[in-house]
Each structure stands twice: as C-alpha cells, then as structure tokens.
Design a protein around this nucleic acid. Sequence first.
DNA 1: CAATCGTCGGAATGCGCTTTCCGACGTTCT
DNA 2: AGAACGTCGGAAAGCGCATTCCGACGATTG
Lengths: 349, 349
Amino acid sequence: MLAKALSTVGAETELITLADVARHAGVSLATASRVLNGSSRQVGAALRERVERAAAELGYETDVTAQTLARGSSKVIGLVVHALTDPYFAALAEGAMRAADRHGLTVMIGATHRDPQRELALVSTLRAQRVQAILLAGSRTTDTEVVDRMRAELTRYREAGGRVACVGQDLLGVDTVAPANRAGAAALARALADLGHRRFAVLAGPPELVTAADRVEGFTSALTELGLPAPRVLPGGFDRHGGHAAATALVDAGLDDVTCVFAVNDVMAVGALAAFRERGVDVPGDLSVAGFDDIATLRDLVPPLTTVRLPLAEMGARALDLALSEKPGVVTEVVAGEVVLRASTALNV
Amino acid sequence: MLAKALSTVGAETELITLADVARHAGVSLATASRVLNGSSRQVGAALRERVERAAAELGYETDVTAQTLARGSSKVIGLVVHALTDPYFAALAEGAMRAADRHGLTVMIGATHRDPQRELALVSTLRAQRVQAILLAGSRTTDTEVVDRMRAELTRYREAGGRVACVGQDLLGVDTVAPANRAGAAALARALADLGHRRFAVLAGPPELVTAADRVEGFTSALTELGLPAPRVLPGGFDRHGGHAAATALVDAGLDDVTCVFAVNDVMAVGALAAFRERGVDVPGDLSVAGFDDIATLRDLVPPLTTVRLPLAEMGARALDLALSEKPGVVTEVVAGEVVLRASTALNV
DNA sequence: CAATCGTCGGAATGCGCTTTCCGACGTTCT
DNA sequence: AGAACGTCGGAAAGCGCATTCCGACGATTG
C-alpha cells in the first residue's frame, strides 16, 4: 500500500510521441502521421488499423504545439473581453465559443478589465501564441494614442496572416460586428415618447466610452427630432455602481419634471433601480426606467426592465465567422437592437 | 488609391523569426534567444541592446508554440466550465483567470454544457495543447462510467507532467477545492428554523448532480437533527427553468403547511421567485425563499435573496494555486459557505 | 510482355526556438 | 609569468510533427 502510494507520486512517464506510435506499430513516422492527423494522402487499411491500435494502446495524443509549428497554422483563436463576470461579455463569449466549437477551434481568452494597456498586452500574447484569429469584444475608447498602438499591433498580426474581428465600434479598421447603438437608443426614445414621457434623464456612463456615448447621442437626437427638450445627462461608471451613483445623484438633485430615466446599459439600470428603491422613488409609479442590452440573467428583475435587446451570443458567433471568412476588404455588419417594453416604464398621462 | 487598396489585401509579410532578429542585430541565434527570452545566461550590455533594438524595429514577437516545443513546457492553462453564461461559472473563471494572470499564464477555455462527452473531449484537447494545468469546474456526475474514463484521461495527462485541480467534489482523485455544500445547507436549515419555519420544501435539482444532492442532504439531515419533519423534495433542472418548473409544481400541488422553500442554487431560486409571482404567492409574505451561492449579479433582486455565500472568484484562484503547487499527494481544500439572511425569508410566527 | 502510370511506404528535411557544448578571451591568484 | 578559472559568443543538436521527394510495387494498357 505504501509502495503504491509512493509510486503514484512522480510517476511522470515520458511523453508518448508519434515516433513511439510508429515504432509500436512497425511503420514509419510519415505513415503514422498520415493516419493520425488527417493528411490528404491515403494509407492502406492494414497499416492504418495497426497505427490506430498502437495509438490507442499507448494513449497517444497529438502534440498540437509541434503540429502548429510544422504546419505553420494553428487551430486556436483568441478572445479578448472586458470581464467574464459582466453578463454582456459572458454572452458574447458564449456565442463566440459555440461558433469556435463548430469550426473545431479552441479558444484562448483574456480579460482586459477596461485597461487599455492590458488589452494591448493580451493582443501581443495572442499574437505570440500564433492564434489563427483574434476577436476583440469590448468598447473601444476614444483615446487616440491607445487606438493607434492597437492598430499597429493588429496590423503586424494581420501581416503575418492573422485574422481579426471586433464587436463594437469600427475604429480599428478591422471586420466589425457593430450593434446599432444609436439607432437602438433612438428607437427606445421614440417608444418612451409614445408612452407620453417628455422630460428624460440619461445615466450616461463614461463619455470616452464609444458605446456609451453613441447610445446617449442616439437617444438625445431622437428626442430633438421629436421636438422634445434635451435630456439631463449624468455621466458616471458603466457598471452597476455607476448606475447607482448617477441615479442617487439625480434624486438628490431633485427629479423636477423628469418622468423617465434611460440607463445606457442594463447593469447600470439595475444599479439605478436599487438606488431609487433606497430613496423611496417608486418604479414605475413615480419614475420609469429603461436600460439597454436585455441581459438574460436580469429578465426576472422586478419590475421587468424595458430595454433594447441585442442578440449577444449571435453577435459573438458572427464576429468569429467574419474573422474567418475569406473576402476582400473590411466588412462592418450592423446588428439592430429591438425595443422591448416591459413594466419598468409606465404610461405617462 | 487603387494600388494602395490592392497592396493592402494579401500583404501577408513573412513571419519575423528570431533568426531575422539575430541577423539584423549581427549576432548569433543563441545570443538573440538569450536576450529576448529570459535565459539564465548573461549577455553583454552592448549586444543585448542591439538585439533589443533589432527586435523592436522588426516588430518581433516570440513564437510561443516553438518555445513550448523546445522547452517542453508551456505557459498555458486549461479551464473547463459548464457555461460562461452561468454566473456561477463566470465568477469561478474570473477568479481563475486573475490568478493565471498573476502567474503569467494564458488561459484556454472550454464549455461542457453539462455534456460528459464534451467534457472528455475538452480534456483531450487541452492535453493535446500541452497545457501546464487543467482546471475542472463544474459538478461531477455520479455516472461511474464517465467518471472512470475521466480519471483515465487525467491519469495519462498527469503522467506526462500535467497538473490538475478541480472545483467541486473530490471524485476524480485530484486536488480539489470543495465548497462545503452539506455544511452550508445545514447551516442554512438551522438559520431558517431559527426564523420559526417548520415545514420546508426543497427545489432539489437533478439527483445525479453531486452538488445538488449534497445540498439537499445537508439541508435535510440538519432538519432531522433539529427534530423537524423531512422537507418535501422536488427534483428538476439545475437552472432557472428547473427552479421555475419545480416551484410551479409545488404551488399547483398545494403548499399545505410549507412556509419556506430552499432552492439549491440562486439561479433556481430566481426561477422560483418568478413562478411564485405568477401564481400570486407573495414572497416573503406567504412563503419564504432561500437560495445558494450568492451570485453577485442577483443581489439586486426584489426581494433580496437569503442564500449561502460562496467566495467563487477566490475558489477559482485557489484551484489554480493548488494545481500549480508542488506538494506530495492529493489535497482537498474545503471552502465554507456563509449564510446570508435577507428579505426573501421572513420570520414565521 | 514491356512500357506506363498510379498508389502508397519511408527517409530526410525543416518549422522556430532552447540549450548544451566549445572555444576564445580576460582575470585573478600563486 | 603561467596556471586556473570565470564570462560570454557561437555552432549545432534536438523538441514533435508535417511534408516533399524518392523508390518500390502492382495494375493497366497497347
């Protein structure tokens, strides 16, 4: 018993290589390779079977790194997101991973936590890993220096045969799946106006975040077109805390005649709902609230959130397909959002 | 202009290799390697500087796959989760990724969607990728055939020097970070009994899922110890839908004297809350509801959910540390859950 | 039946990098 | 001053695999 325990530790058998399999099957390296790793060349049934049995008996597993080196192309893609705990990115990642799976690709993932330096570093890492494609999800900042460095990095990557696609804004000169943030926010504004709302506040997120800025702008200009007054715009963070803080600030400053609040994403809206509850503002009785994204995990909120639905998983999948597709030039696919009216927004009479 | 557009397509410059850098710097391959990839050997300042400049000028990026092959060890770890859209796993993954980052490791990720075949396939893939460690998150099933095959696969991997850790139950004979499901559920049962509840129902999830079964058992046996009647146990899915369905079934069958419902995870509890709302059962007025996990995204639920908090991100990080740590034998780290009483459970007088 | 062709197995080369081994040179010690 | 040693640059041998090129063999054809 003791002996067994000891033998378990540090077993560390040598790695089983293709050469081992070939020897064990009594064939050449080339033949073994052709049998086990989808070559275009045929191998006779007898030998093929011997190789396969040898591989199974030895528990052989291809060394993909060696294969990548020899073939000069890998079956791995890279995925760069803000954070997995953000359901928006989790949904994108989920969609991208499903698509990767369909293509027989493995996924390497990295989180930026909205740090542009980290994002740059992640792209370098993925480049070093010789991934076949890089998917960039996460809003671009408007900081031109960062954008320029990212473009340079991506250019080098693409010159070496790498493929890139991005979910968000087309600022990088790469294939892009772009949610129609402006149009979606505008449609939402019109829908809310239809409910009778006239005075709005916008929990706007960080002005330098393009996604946030676009949504604010789409919302605002739609109001203008309708001949309604411009909304009160409260900047802040793009997360739950940001929504909570901005909503608190709004209440403390006095709602005046504001009857409806638009938080530029659902997670912020959740924070806002909490803040309003704490301050005794009833939603939708005293105030209507709308978000953006239609995060699935949040659909059971009370009251259910009016929002703009984005097909996030599908967007992730389309980004991968775009990156992988052979085509000239750079493509931007716009994805429309769909206004979903729920109980968090009431008729305003 | 046309010329420029054409030149952009298919630019595909040759890959820049270490040899290019060495030539450009006028040094040998060996020297370039030593400068650029942390060797133990020193290189004179003059040469070192020349190599570094050459690398920067050429935009060189190490080919990690070649490096892995040459060194025989990689800087990548594999992470196997159920699904990223499940916030439980997203939080685990987030923690593991942060830890990986601290260790300078890249993360390869795969989703099983609770399909044991897929899980097996993922482990094979990761083994083929020669990842340094594999982290298995996600509840083990009690299906012994699958467990055995998984053990065999992992054994081969470890014999080749791979490291493995698992978050969940210790069924695989590997290092494990094990949430104290039984103890946590038992503590929850006692806390709810302290609130005056006597008759419980448990939305139990799938009986073959060890996590679910353990929580049910911990809850039940604590009630027994308190001299209370056994709860009504309603099996079902482990997700929102499962919670919703089980809760609906409960109401339709008649609550009788049940005053408190324990859903074995938060996501199921959310489904249950929705079902109760639909059926006009007020929570916590008519019925108290408790969950398990304390998912962060769900903290703004109304009413706020009584639950057992698990430090998910930390658990992910600890799993990685465990896998990487040099130590004899197999370690199981138990992580305690903390009962958090919130408004979804009321005093029962 | 010889010439031609197609099929399939194997030896050898190379993918980009690390690392061992050698050798050249400059220091230090006796 | 010579021996012993340490430092640092380079040549070359792999790491595990894919693939090209070659050659052997059997089948087809005129």
